[in-house]
């Protein structure tokens, strides 16, 4: 028997004695639902959407979702700007680049980023097809697209295939995300559904849910931004 077979044999042996279902202990006030719906387990038919109704809400209408995303961004210290047009997004981007004195930016090829980097008109490192890490580290900003944005949490999702790789969105000190209004969804459940639609037949090797700039509270539980990843996160949406 190899190690895998040995461990699996031990697991199967252990599981011959059933364990009680959760919720069968305790007598306190925080009992949750008394009646547990009988779930059908092991992949088939388990009601995965059941928990959705109990989570923090993401808003039902697009307007509500936008309001929630905006509020969550403010709390997370994400610089979220919802603008009227792509041209206005480019103008905002130029404004940020000027005020921060960007000399060199990094990005990847896509319709949104190509238009934006062209409008920006600064030397640009494109990560598609490989790059030297030191060169990427020397860039002041990483400009990417995203797959989906989540109203419930103020998050956005980047991946390793269509958002310029694993490092572009995390190595430069400023991460700028270009997004369309219709990429914003209500909650994480909807976000996973959208990801399935986008990549379900061929997943990228990395999918990252990004929620605010990099942060730490490791010193006296005091919030500091930019622990290892970006100190700033800007979302330009139109």
């Amino acid at each position: 028997m190899n190690a895998q077979e040995r461990i699996l044999a031990r697991i199967r042996e252990a599981l011959t004695v059933p364990a009680p279902m959760p919720g069968s202990h305790g007598h306190g006030h925080d009992q949750g639902r008394v009646e547990v719906p009988a779930p059908v387990f092991a992949f088939q038919g388990r009601p995965v959407h059941v928990a959705r109704a109990w989570l923090p809400p993401g808003g039902t209408t697009p307007e509500e979702q936008l309001t929630r995303f905006s509020a969550a961004s403010a709390e997370l210290k994400t610089d979220f700007r919802c603008v009227a047009s792509e041209a206005e997004a480019h103008q905002q981007l130029r404004g940020i680049a000027d005020s921060e004195g960007w000399k060199r930016v990094a990005s990847h090829h896509s319709a949104l980023t190509d238009a934006a980097t062209t409008a920006l008109g600064r030397p640009t490192l494109f990560t598609d097809g490989g790059y030297v890490p030191d060169d990427l580290e020397a860039c002041e900003a990483g400009i990417t697209t995203c797959d989906v944005l989540v109203a419930q949490t103020g998050s956005l999702v980047v991946n390793s295939r269509t958002s310029g790789g694993r490092a572009l969105s995390v190595l430069p000190p400023h991460h700028v995300v270009l997004a369309r209004r219709d990429q914003l969804v209500c909650d994480l459940t909807a976000a996973f559904q959208r990801l399935e639609e986008l990549h379900g037949r061929n997943w990228p090797s990395m999918i990252s849910l990004v929620t605010g700039p990099s942060r730490t509270g490791d010193i006296e539980r005091i919030l500091v931004l930019g622990a290892h990843g970006p100190k700033k996160l800007t979302v330009l949406m139109w």
Binding site: P56, A72, Q152, T153, G154, S155, V170, L188, W203, P204, S205, M206, I207, S208, L209, V210, T211, G212, P213, S214, R215, G229
Partner: peptide
């Protein structure tokens, strides 16, 4: 609400 990065590797 959620932490800064939640990343899936496949």
């Amino acid at each position: 609400t959620v932490t800064g990065y939640n990343t899936l590797y496949g």
